[in-house]
Design a protein around this nucleic acid. Structure first.
Lengths: 227, 227
DNA sequence: TGTACATCAGTGAACGCGCGTTCACTGATGTAC
DNA sequence: TGTACATCAGTGAACGCGCGTTCACTGATGTAC
């Protein structure tokens, strides 16, 4: 049950996950192999099979690790935002949550892709806060702070999650590009719209301008041949 | 310049793209190989190099093909929506555009992933309408129809695109799952929020309920070990 | 405390595989005279 | 119209490679007596 740290390698399972995270960050998922992860840890390829039943199993662990890191970063950002904005902590925390989500994706594109690129089979039930629960709580707090009207609370998770997930996807997919790498600026420009979409007290709170960005996909192109 | 159709294979380039699209739809990008595409067309692997400089080059063509198909489906859906809703054609077309986007993604997950998974180098300049231009026009028309206030027009593309792209990503990434495969229902539940976020005439137009869906990622889980 | 044994995390060789890409070639088509 | 030649889309064999996974094994650790 408790950890034993100096048995043979020590903690090969965690070491392999960390190696995988690091290698995937460098070469992407497509370029990642079990063998490389084992070599990176200094262990024979077959040793990995003592801890993971397959490569897919390892990738599953990598994805889980990503959700854990994401949750931690969100929590930290929210706590800080609350402290800095004592007059409207719930609103500040909500915005911080969204920014942390997008920032995590931009800082760890391949990891983020693994997290949302594989279907999950096993779902451990344990005791720490999850990103989705943080979102739910943040929305509840928005109601508590009277930023969000109770009658508009239902379904807010899906909407808020979609916006930030979409912005993250467009940024890491190379569809759009900020001029100066200013993720905060582009995120903030969306905040008034997000709040309005939530039904923020029914008032039109639109303000703030969108910093320039470049559309980088054929989405913005013209085409010659219909297929 | 003009097509020659019976020279050796005929139109190997297009045939390879179509084979790739079909094979990727079946096995995903990860499981796709140049050799398999060539074999599928009935041609030796090396023949592909007469038309594409590398596998990556082929995938680029596959992505472009996807944007063309997406644009066509959006246009078709918009035209139909306008016809069916003569009293508010712009609003109907805008909603149809969004639904077509999400539907395309859900119907062609790996193709969609290729479209947004590789950075584009070459950008052909030709004469057909692009998805992004359709979005811009749709938003302009919303202003024309007085659904959207002029002062809220700026930056609307990024916002609208983010929401639908995010919903699409969550659905095809397996993060959320509709109970009954009803994409239209879940999309429609977001429409009032999207319109409110656009700043739709400043009025609170929230209504419509969210059909049940299942959150399927560890986003919704609890965790045990911080990393 | 000392010995015999069970456990199990690791080794290392081997497997069969399909991959992307190259290269010298062949042979059908198009063109100049 | 007929012939010689250039073009170039295809062939097929070969390359070197790294992959995921297996299997019989070794040897360090933990445990029972």
């Amino acid at each position: 049950m408790e950890k034993r740290n100096q048995y043979h390698h020590g903690n090969l399972e965690q070491a392999l996950i960390e190696a995988a995270v690091s290698l995937i960050a460098q070469h992407g998922v497509a370029g990642f192999s079990l063998r490389e992860a084992a070599a990176h840890v200094g262990v024979s390829p077959s040793a990995a099979y003592r801890h993971f039943s397959s490569k897919e199993d390892l990738l599953n662990a990598v994805a889980l690790d990503g959700f854990q890191r994401l949750a931690l970063q969100m929590e930290h950002a929210m706590a800080e935002a609350r402290t800095l904005n004592p007059e409207c902590p719930a609103l500040a925390a909500f915005q911080a949550l969204g920014l942390a989500y997008v920032t995590f994706a931009v800082n760890n594109p391949p990891h983020f892709q693994v997290m949302f690129g594989i279907p999950f089979q096993e779902k451990p039930e344990t005791d720490r806060t999850s990103p989705y629960q943080l979102l739910q709580t943040a929305l509840d707090d928005l109601v508590g702070e009277k930023v969000l009207a109770v009658e508009n609370r239902s379904g807010a998770e899906l909407y808020a999650w979609s916006v930030v997930h979409g912005l993250a996807g467009l940024l890491i997919g190379g569809a759009i590009r900020t001029i100066d790498g200013d993720i905060t600026g582009i995120f903030n420009s969306l905040v008034p719209r997000i709040l309005a979409g939530l039904g923020s007290a029914g008032k039109n709170i639109l303000r703030g301008s969108v910093p320039p960005f470049i559309v980088d996909t054929p989405l913005a192109m013209k085409f010659t041949t219909p297929s």
